[in-house]
């Protein structure tokens, strides 16, 4: 709603035009991208849980990485996906990428996997594969639990999955050692927990954007999730654990100072609010 123009210094400090705020924020981001002040990143228990869950996958089982995200959350979920893929390659765990919602994610994740695979000389179809976007959400998961080759049918490149070397012996949910859900969308975790983790006891871990992660702490506390990556911080922690500092670590440098700026602005606004209340005359010039 439109407001009267501010009178007095404290009134003006309560109504700093938003363009100045945007400029300040942009300045902080550019400053940290060009001249980063690197601070140490210590992995949290939730992140260590994800790393340990990957480590504990038996040799004869595979990991499913469900990449239900799209380009909008890529700054958070992209590095999370990359760090998880790095961990899988380093710990020599075979994995399959797939996607139940936001079809864009499986292509973006595929590009990430191809890039990382080159560093480890990993072969498609042997060390990793991409099942592609699968329609049906809950119905698909119920079908996967019973018969993976029939439910998945073809991979991202339209080849039958049964022809991929790593899929030999992968029959049903008992062949899955871990499911990692990387998502910026609400509702996907409940499907995995209810249809796969709950009935079959398949280990489950996750990675979320920072804004939605607080809603999933109950599942971490109850033990339904082995671990959780929280936003870019979780991705940075995972990058640190796999010794591949990348874009998430850079994002954390920027985010640190951006948070500080927001806190400073809130403090200025509150100081101005209280000072303005103490000096009622200022508003009446």
């Amino acid at each position: 709603m439109t407001q009267a123009p501010p009178h007095g210094f404290w009134q003006r400090m309560q109504q700093i035009p938003r363009y100045y705020i945007y400029a300040l924020l942009a300045g902080v981001v550019i400053w940290q991208l060009l001249f980063p002040i690197r601070l140490p990143i210590a992995p949290s228990r939730a992140t260590l849980g994800v790393r340990d869950a990957i480590r504990n996958v038996p040799e004869d089982k595979i990991v499913i990485i469900s990449v239900d995200w799209d380009a909008s959350t890529q700054p958070e979920t992209g590095p999370q996906t990359q760090a998880i893929i790095e961990a899988c390659f380093q710990l020599k765990k075979r994995f399959a990428i797939m996607n139940l919602a936001a079809p864009m994610g499986v292509k973006l994740a595929n590009d990430i996997a191809l890039r990382v695979a080159r560093r480890y000389n990993a072969k498609y179809g042997v060390d990793w594969c991409n099942w592609g976007y699968k329609v049906g959400q809950g119905n698909f998961l119920m079908a996967v639990a019973k018969n993976i080759p029939k439910a998945v049918a073809t991979d991202f490149y339209n080849k039958p999955v049964s022809e991929l070397p790593m899929m030999r012996g992968v029959e049903n949910i008992s062949s899955i050692g871990l499911v990692v859900e990387v998502t910026g969308l609400a509702g996907m975790t409940e499907l995995w927990l209810g249809l796969i983790q709950g009935p079959y006891g398949t280990p489950f871990a996750s990675a979320y954007t920072a804004v939605m992660a607080p809603g999933y702490y109950p599942y971490l506390d109850s033990g339904q999730m082995k671990g959780m990556l929280v936003g870019a911080k979780g991705a940075a922690e995972m990058e640190t654990l796999v010794n591949r500092p990348g874009s998430a670590v850079a994002i954390m440098n920027v985010q640190s100072w951006a948070h500080l700026l927001i806190i400073v602005l809130i403090v200025i606004g509150n100081v101005a609010y209280f000072m303005g209340r103490r000096r009622p005359g200022e508003g009446r010039r």
Partner: peptide, 8 residues
């Protein structure tokens, strides 16, 4: 809310 296959 978690989804289940069937009710108990």
């Amino acid at each position: 809310m978690a989804t289940l296959e069937h009710a108990n």
